[in-house]
């Protein structure tokens, strides 16, 4: 029985995220005030037969640990 999981990947603190900045700059023109520190990351959903190896998978492929942090969440089966 495979485990459903969600991996959240985001740029590390301190690394300039130009996508986040671009989103942030666009917000006032749309009437959204008071929103800051926007960071754009990536989300990967997957099903793993061996969830024990997910962290290794993240470190080797899904994220680049030098520049990105990741979190793994398991998703309750529906």
């Amino acid at each position: 029985m495979a485990t459903k999981a969600r991996v959240l990947i985001r740029p590390k603190e301190g690394i300039l995220d130009p996508q986040g900045k671009a989103v942030e700059r666009a917000l006032p023109a749309l009437g959204f005030e008071g929103i800051g520190h926007v960071r754009v990351g990536r989300m990967v959903e997957l099903e793993a037969e061996d969830p024990e190896r997910l962290a290794e998978l993240c470190e080797k492929l899904l994220a680049n640990p030098l520049i990105e942090d990741f979190e793994i969440e398991s998703i309750d089966g529906s």
Binding site: I15, L16, P18, Q19, A22, N64, L66, I67
Partner: peptide
Amino acid sequence: CEADLLPGALLLNEDL
């Protein structure tokens, strides 16, 4: 860089 044969990483251009 991804293969760790060189140090560092290449990110999106600053001005996108």
